[in-house]
Design a protein around this nucleic acid. Structure first.
Length: 193
DNA sequence: GGGAGGATGGAT
DNA sequence: TCCATCCTCCCA
């Protein structure tokens, strides 16, 4: 696959996968500073997203979809803008937002929000579970994302390899597909916006 | 039907 | 460094 080698801009022919990969990474970056809004029993809790990771397509060996289309990964093959929630290590719910295009499995894991660092803590603090799996990210589902005007300047964004995926091998484990913004610095940025 | 291993987090 | 805890997927 053309996008597997790294520098897409040197490619003469840009494949559908290349475009989709770029779109997912741009989307991941754009999620920093957006607000995750949980509505439950008439109450709303909102948290600014501070850390995400991208899992991009069937060729990404760290992506669950790399092992084929199964019952669990089915939602990743569906239309974008839906939640992919699964249980890991028998105790932690992982919250992902499916990105597009349909039929091309990719998702963004929400690893941190203001006040909760770590994907397991994100879901625990917002009471998010597998009941949301496959649901669209709209208010009626009880969980959606809002842009409340928080600006995240590039200098506050850190990119690193993804966490806990060494089993995927060095090529995929080294992709800088984790995006973070310092929570405290973000507070200042939000105040200035 | 059985078994291995996992996109973590907290304790030791 | 260890391990709780259970779902998913592969293999037989």
């Amino acid at each position: 696959m053309g996008s597997g080698t790294g520098n897409d801009f040197n490619s003469q022919v840009l494949t559908t996968e290349t475009w989709a990969s770029r779109a997912t990474l741009a989307h991941a970056r754009a999620l920093l500073g957006k607000v995750l809004v949980r509505t439950r029993a008439g109450r709303e809790s909102a948290r600014v997203i501070t850390e995400v990771e991208a899992y991009i397509g069937g060729s990404d060996l760290a992506c669950h979809a790399s092992r084929g289309r199964t019952r669990r990964t089915e939602v990743m093959y569906g239309p974008p803008g839906h939640w992919y929630v699964y249980l890991v290590y028998g105790m932690h719910e992982m919250l992902n937002l499916v990105t597009g295009p349909e039929g091309w499995p990719s998702a963004i894991l929400i690893r941190g929000v203001a006040g909760a660092s770590g994907p397991g803590r994100v879901t625990r603090s917002l009471v998010v579970g597998r009941a949301l799996n496959g649901k669209p990210a709209v208010r009626a589902s009880g969980l959606h994302i809002e842009d409340r005007g928080i600006r995240v300047p590039e200098r506050l964004v850190t990119r690193t390899p993804r966490i806990g995926i060494n089993y995927a091998g060095p090529v995929w484990a080294s992709k800088p597909w984790r995006f973070m913004v310092d929570s405290a610095a973000l507070g200042g940025a939000a105040a200035n916006s």
